[in-house]
């Protein structure tokens, strides 16, 4: 029997699999096992060393009905995500629109605004703790020049989460770069045609630029939504003893999960928490994907 020549399509899909093979191997070898294990162990009282007895849905039930800190941490995280995701997205689009001009010295400004994205981690948090210091920090000093009596930022439970969101806005440079790249890819013909039709700058921005960059907006919203739910370091570093800030206002979901796992050694309980978070994020991402065709515009898409 002669071997049948592979069709172009099949060939392509084989190449595709080869390209994703490293990820699949990594997933099967390192991620899949722990994933399955954590799901199974979330129905036990696993504490890493001495016990692992099946307790049914007790962990889940306890979280929903008896644990007030669970709800606090979920609320804190939702609050953070609800504000930080739209604000950083709008901020990044706004900034990249400004930096997408053809004026002398623009490269300097692009570098300047991108710089915070290069810095990362604990160093930045330390810096912001000093900047946001109510008595001696730069932020309140600048506010005082305008006659504003600045808030107590990280010491006032009403201001701790806004402080972090504020800090996040400072480092939108990373996603700004994506928007900038995609804005530069927008064909000049479209703008020229619009100009002939008499469109002003705003109309061009809202009717050409924004629709053309929707794939990047979509990508940014999905990834920053997922990243937002995973906020941990900021609260761990920027609150006293990593406890979650004044009046638990920075007790984010992952911080509470970490405390359950590694200071109380309730590993099974923490695993149940991680699965609840997984379901929430999964659900939101599915909604995102379902809504995407309504507003995301892919060029060259087959209709």
């Amino acid at each position: 029997m002669g071997k049948k020549r592979l069709t172009m399509r099949r060939k392509e899909s084989i190449y595709g699999y080869i390209f994703v093979l490293p990820w699949i191997i990594g997933f099967l070898a390192f991620t899949a096992g722990p994933l399955v294990f954590s799901f199974a162990a979330s129905f036990t009282n696993y504490n890493i060393t001495s016990q692992m007895d099946f307790v049914g849905g007790d962990n889940y039930q306890g979280l929903f009905t008896e644990d007030s800190l669970f709800w606090t941490s979920l609320w804190n995280t939702l609050y953070f995500v609800a504000f930080s995701v739209p604000l950083t997205t709008i901020g990044a689009i706004f900034l990249s629109a400004l930096l997408n001009q053809d004026i002398p010295g623009i490269r300097f400004f692009r570098t300047l605004y991108y710089l915070p994205a290069v810095l990362s981690g604990v160093g930045v948090y330390m810096l912001w703790m000093q900047l946001l210091d109510p008595g001696t920090g730069m932020v309140n000093l600048v506010l005082s020049w305008f006659g504003i009596d600045g808030p107590n930022w990280l010491f006032d439970p009403d201001w701790t989460k806004p402080s972090l969101i504020f800090m996040k806005l400072w480092s939108v440079g990373g996603s700004m770069l994506l928007y900038l790249a995609s804005m530069q890819g927008v064909s000049k013909n479209l703008y020229e045609a619009a100009e002939i039709d008499g469109a002003n700058t705003w109309r061009k921005f809202f009717h050409i630029t924004i629709p053309m960059i929707t794939p990047v907006i979509f990508f940014d919203v999905v990834t920053s939504l997922i990243g937002g739910f995973q906020i941990f370091q900021e609260a761990y570093v920027m609150s006293n003893n990593g406890e979650g800030g004044p009046a638990n206002s920075l007790l984010f979901y992952n911080l509470y999960m970490w405390k359950q796992a590694f200071t109380n050694f309730n590993m099974g309980y923490a695993m149940a928490m991680s699965w609840i978070l997984f379901v929430i994020v999964f659900f939101l991402t599915v909604i995102n994907l379902k809504l995407a065709p309504r507003w995301v515009h892919y060029e060259g898409e087959e209709k």
Partner: peptide, 17 residues
């Protein structure tokens, strides 16, 4: 109750605030 203090501290924060 190894983590009992995480239930007391927030209340004390509220008190001092």
């Amino acid at each position: 109750a190894p983590d009992f203090s995480s239930l007391i501290n927030p209340n004390m924060d509220e008190f001092f605030l």
